[in-house]
């Protein structure tokens, strides 16, 4: 529930910050600035979700190891991420 409350808080904050700016689009586009700021705005929420998922994986790995299932170190969150095969 805390995660959901945190997520909602960030979403409302993000929408609020975006609504502060005027809605006129000018001919000259510098999309980099908007994209940079967008990442900063959503980074907190998505980073939080990522951290929670990593934490959850550690818990699952801990109990799996405790009960003798899944002894692979790859399940640990502090291991480098092993990107999945896109062709799978």
């Amino acid at each position: 529930m805390r995660a959901i409350r945190k997520f909602s808080k960030y979403l409302v904050l993000t929408l609020f910050v975006l609504s502060l700016f005027p809605s006129v689009a000018f001919a000259y586009l510098d999309p980099g600035t908007g994209s940079y700021l967008m990442q900063v705005l959503i980074g907190g929420v998505m980073g939080g979700m990522f951290a929670v998922s990593m934490f959850w994986r550690r818990i699952v790995a801990f109990f799996s190891n405790l009960f003798g299932r899944g002894t692979s170190k790859d399940n640990l969150a502090d291991e480098p991420s092993k990107p999945s095969d896109p062709s799978e």
Binding site: A25, Y28, L29, D30, T33, G34, S35, I42
Partner: peptide, 11 residues
């Protein structure tokens, strides 16, 4: 929202 952000900061 990304699109909106680009519009907001276009200038």
């Amino acid at each position: 929202m990304h699109s909106r952000s680009q519009e907001r900061h276009a200038d």
